[in-house]
């Protein structure tokens, strides 16, 4: 009796994606991604034919990615809560967990695929082989950062219920962390990227003359850099998920 329609989940997801594709939003995401990559590749230290270009100026990509992701998730969560759109959707025969997860997966997929595609421009700009392992390490770190921003902005969205406030608050929080902590801290996106990049640099390019970090990062440092955001993401998303599905009042 309490069965959900098995296709409801995918329909909600397609709906969310279609909502994004309809607006000028998609154009904005794509443009922001391309701009981010172009700024990055014109960094002054740019070496030709070097994977090091992937590291240089990555903070710009992270910054713009943070801004876009905060805006998008705040719009989708706080925006639809504040405007009453969520109220309408939750009045249809859908389960709350379906609405929550479909929103997160759909938006993450969109942002990630756009940014990953734009990032492949780097292969061309720096004349790298498509098999360059550091390219995939960079994309992975980007994905990790995306998840973190997603969790933070969803959490703040549900707490503040105002699109503008939540965009600002989550962006300022993440941007503030990046500003307050430098490239040798697990708390800044740049710091985590540096550790991960530096560790894998030794693994894949042990004989390369230039190392981004002296001494190079250890496996443990790389691991903590990966685990920290994942841990925060898990805690925040599980907490918000439980609240959203069991307690949250929509009015």
């Amino acid at each position: 009796m309490n069965k959900t329609n098995p296709k409801t989940f995918s329909r909600l997801m397609l709906w969310e994606i279609e909502g994004c594709l309809n607006l000028p939003t998609l154009l904005l995401i794509v443009a922001s991604a391309i701009v981010a990559v172009l700024i990055q590749s014109s960094s002054p230290r740019s070496l030709s034919n070097s994977y090091i270009n992937l590291y240089d100026g990555a903070s710009i990509i992270f910054l713009i990615l943070t801004l876009v992701t905060c805006t998008l998730f705040s719009h989708s969560f706080a925006g639809s809560l504040g405007k009453g759109e969520l109220k309408r959707i939750l009045s249809y025969p859908v389960k709350r967990w379906q609405v929550f997860t479909s929103k997160i997966i759909a938006l993450t997929l969109i942002v990630f695929s756009v940014y990953a595609s734009a990032f492949t421009l780097n292969l061309y700009l720096s004349s790298l082989s498509p098999l360059e392992p550091m390219f995939y390490i960079s994309i992975f770190t980007m994905f990790l950062h995306l998840l973190l921003v997603c969790a933070v902005s969803v959490g703040i969205s549900i707490a503040l219920r105002s699109e503008l406030m939540s965009t600002l608050a989550s962006f300022l929080l993440l941007f503030g962390l990046d500003m307050a902590f430098d490239y040798r801290s697990y708390l800044s996106s740049n710091g985590r990227f540096t550790y991960i990049f530096s560790y894998f640099q030794q693994v894949f390019h042990p004989n390369f003359s230039y190392s981004i970090l002296e001494p190079p990062a250890t496996a443990q440092q790389a691991l903590i850099s990966i685990a920290t955001p994942l841990f925060v993401v898990a805690i925040v998303l599980i907490g918000v998920f439980v609240y959203f599905t069991r307690k949250m009042e929509v009015d």
Partner: peptide
């Protein structure tokens, strides 16, 4: 809202 399970 209560009838629809939106408010507890």
């Amino acid at each position: 809202g209560i009838l629809l399970g939106l408010i507890q």
